[in-house]
Write a protein that binds this DNA or RNA. Structure first.
Length: 460
RNA sequence: GGCGCGGUGGCAGAGUGGUUAUGCAGCGGACUGCAACUCCGUAUACGCCGGUUCGAUUCCGACCCGCGCCUCCA
C-alpha cells in the first residue's frame, strides 16, 4: 500500500486513486525565463520517482507538467535581452528539457504550455465571474477570496490573519487584500490577448487550474510542487478549481522541501543558486539525481561539493557491484521485482528514497558476495530495484570509462594500448615498468584494476 | 505578530520505546607482485533541562538554537 504525506491533511494518508484505471498526476513546471537551478530540479526528480512508482502500481498514469511561458519575469527578461518572447521561452524550454533528461527523468505524458491555453483560461474566468467568485475592477479580473468559505485550508491561514499580516501595499481596487489576479491588462508594448475584459494576460495561478481541467479532469489525484508554492499559488489554484467546477479539485497535495546553500534557501532572488547546466559540467547527471534522492523529499537538503562527491563515491560502489570482478554476468531477463522488496516498500512509505538507497546497497553487497551461479538473479534484482529510482541504468563499464572522458586528454584506444603494454610487462615480471604505466595513468585520473579476466580501467 | 518545520556519530542521512540503519571518509585484517576493487572486523550519535516508564534518541512539557511561509520563487 502506498502512503503519501498530504499537505491538506498534514499527515501521511493511504493513497486511494479516484479511478485505479487512470491515476492523474500534475506537477508545477518551470517559468522559462532562465536556466533552471538544482532547486528547480528537485521536484522534477522527486516526482519522477513517484511517476515510476505509480506506473508500477497502476495500469495507467497520466502525468502532466506545465511550462509557464507567459509571466512578468519573462517580459522583464525579454526587455533585457531584446529577444521576442517566444524565442526566449522556446530557448529556455529546450534547455529545461535537456537538463532534465540529463537527470534521467522521464518525459511527462503531457507538457502543456500556458500560451496554448488562453481560451481555456478566459472561459474559466468567465465561469468564476458568473458564479459570483470573481469580479472585474480597474481592468483586472480578481478572485474574491471572501466568496469561498474555506479559503486558506491548504496553507492553514484565515482571511483575518491575512488582512492583519499584509506586508505589501494593497491595490485599492481589491475588495479584500487577499483577492488575487485572474486577468490583468497589458500595455501596448506588453504581450497580450483579446478577452472580454480587454487586451491583457492571465494571472499566475489560473493557467494550472485551466490546464488541469482540460487535460486531466475536474478532480485529479495528486498535485505536486515545491513547498514555496503552498501559498499563494496552490491555495489559489484550489480556490479557482473548486469554485469553478464545484469539486475538491485535488485529492493529494505533495510538496518537496528546499535545497539550501550554507543553511539558507537557494533561490533566484537570493542569487545563491547553482544551475543544473553548470553542475553537469563537473558531475554526471546521475550523480546529481542520486544526491537529490539521498535525503527524504520533504526535508531540506544542504547542497555542497562534498554532497556531490559522496554521492559519486556511493554511486560508484553500486556500479562496481554491477561491473563485477572481471567475470561476465548477464542479468536474468525473467527477473521481476517482488512486491515486498525492501526498495519498493521503502518507496511505498511516502517515497523514503534514503531508505530505498540503503536497501540498494544491501542488494549490491549480496551481489558482491554471491557465488557465480547466483549473480544473474542478483544483478537483475539490483537493476530492477534501482530502476524504480531511475538509477543504475547506464552500462557499468561505460559509467566508469566515459564519465569524465576528455579531462585527461587520453582517448580510450590510447589507454587500452598502455594497459596492454603493462599486461605484457607484468607477464615479463617487469613490475617497475608495469607500475610506471599505472602511475602515469593514475596521474591522468585513471585507475587500473587487475581481475582474473584481465586488467580493466576506470576514470574518475 | 500569525502559521509551520527541524536540531542524530568526522560528513551525508534514515529510523525506532529496549536489539547494527545505510553510504562516504577513517582505522585494523584478508585478497594482490605491489595496488585497485571486494570481503571480514572496528571507533565515533541522537541540542539542553525536566517528566512518564522497568527502560527514551524515540512519548509529554519547558528552554536554547537554526530555518521556512505570510511578497515573485521549486
Amino acid at each position: 500500500m502506498l502512503t503519501l504525506h498530504n499537505t491538506l491533511t498534514g499527515h501521511k494518508d493511504a493513497f486511494q486513486p479516484l479511478d485505479p484505471q487512470r491515476v492523474t498526476l500534475y506537477v508545477c513546471g518551470p517559468t522559462v525565463y532562465n536556466y533552471v537551478h538544482i532547486g528547480n530540479a528537485r521536484p522534477v526528480v522527486v516526482f519522477d520517482v513517484l511517476y515510476r512508482l505509480l506506473s508500477r502500481l497502476y495500469p495507467k498514469v497520466v502525468y502532466a507538467r506545465n511550462i509557464t511561458d507567459i509571466d512578468d519575469k519573462i517580459i522583464t527578461a525579454c526587455a533585457e535581452t531584446g529577444e521576442p518572447m517566444t524565442a526566449l521561452t522556446e530557448r529556455f524550454t529546450d534547455a529545461f528539457r535537456e537538463d532534465m533528461a540529463a537527470l534521467n527523468t522521464l518525459q511527462p505524458d503531457i507538457v502543456p504550455k500556458a500560451t496554448d491555453h488562453i481560451g481555456e483560461m478566459t472561459a474559466m474566468i468567465e465561469t468564476l465571474i458568473a458564479k459570483g467568485h470573481a469580479y472585474e475592477a480597474d481592468g483586472h479580473v480578481l478572485f474574491a477570496v471572501e466568496s469561498m468559505p474555506d479559503y486558506g485550508k491548504l496553507s492553514g491561514r484565515n482571511l483575518e490573519d491575512m488582512r492583519a499580516g499584509a506586508r505589501v501595499e494593497v491595490a485599492d481596487y481589491k475588495r479584500h487584500p487577499g483577492d488575487f489576479v485572474l486577468w490583468k491588462p497589458s500595455s501596448d508594448d506588453q504581450p497580450g490577448w483579446e478577452s472580454p475584459w480587454g487586451r491583457g494576460r492571465p494571472g499566475w495561478h489560473i493557467e494550472c487550474s485551466a490546464m488541469i481541467h482540460k487535460h486531466l479532469g475536474d478532480v485529479i489525484d495528486i498535485h505536486g510542487g515545491g513547498q514555496d508554492l503552498i501559498f499563494p499559488h496552490h491555495e489559489n489554484e484550489i480556490a479557482q478549481g473548486c469554485c469553478a467546477h464545484g469539486t475538491e479539485y485535488v485529492r493529494y497535495w505533495m510538496h518537496n522541501g528546499y535545497i539550501n546553500i550554507d543553511g539558507e534557501k537557494m533561490s533566484k532572488s537570493l542569487g545563491n543558486f547553482r544551475l543544473v547546466r553548470d553542475l553537469l559540467e563537473k558531475f554526471p547527471g546521475e550523480v546529481l539525481r542520486f544526491a537529490l534522492l539521498s535525503s527524504h523529499y520533504r526535508s531540506p537538503l544542504n547542497f555542497s561539493a562534498e554532497l556531490l562527491e559522496q554521492a559519486e563515491s556511493s554511486l560508484d560502489s553500486l556500479y562496481y557491484a554491477l561491473l563485477g570482478r572481471g567475470e561476465t554476468v548477464h542479468a536474468d531477463p525473467d527477473f521481476r521485482l517482488p512486491e515486498d522488496h525492501p526498495v519498493l516498500t521503502a518507496l511505498l512509505d511516502d517515497l523514503n528514497t534514503s531508505e530505498a538507497i540503503s536497501a540498494l546497497h544491501a542488494v549490491a553487497a549480496r551481489l558482491n558476495k554471491a557465488a557465480l551461479e547466483e549473480k544473474p538473479t542478483l544483478k537483475a534484482e539490483l537493476q530492477a530495484a534501482a530502476q524504480l529510482l531511475g538509477l543504475l541504468e547506464a552500462d557499468p563499464s561505460a559509467w566508469f570509462q566515459d564519465k569524465k572522458a576528455g579531462d585527461d586528454g587520453l582517448d580510450n584506444a590510447t589507454i587500452d594500448g598502455l594497459v596492454a603494454e603493462r599486461t605484457q610487462a607484468k607477464k615479463d615480471k617487469n613490475f617497475a615498468r608495469a607500475d610506471e604505466i599505472r602511475d602515469q595513468l593514475k596521474d591522468a585520473g585513471i585507475q587500473l584494476e587487475d581481475t582474473r579476466e584481465g586488467t580493466r580501467w576506470t576514470r574518475g
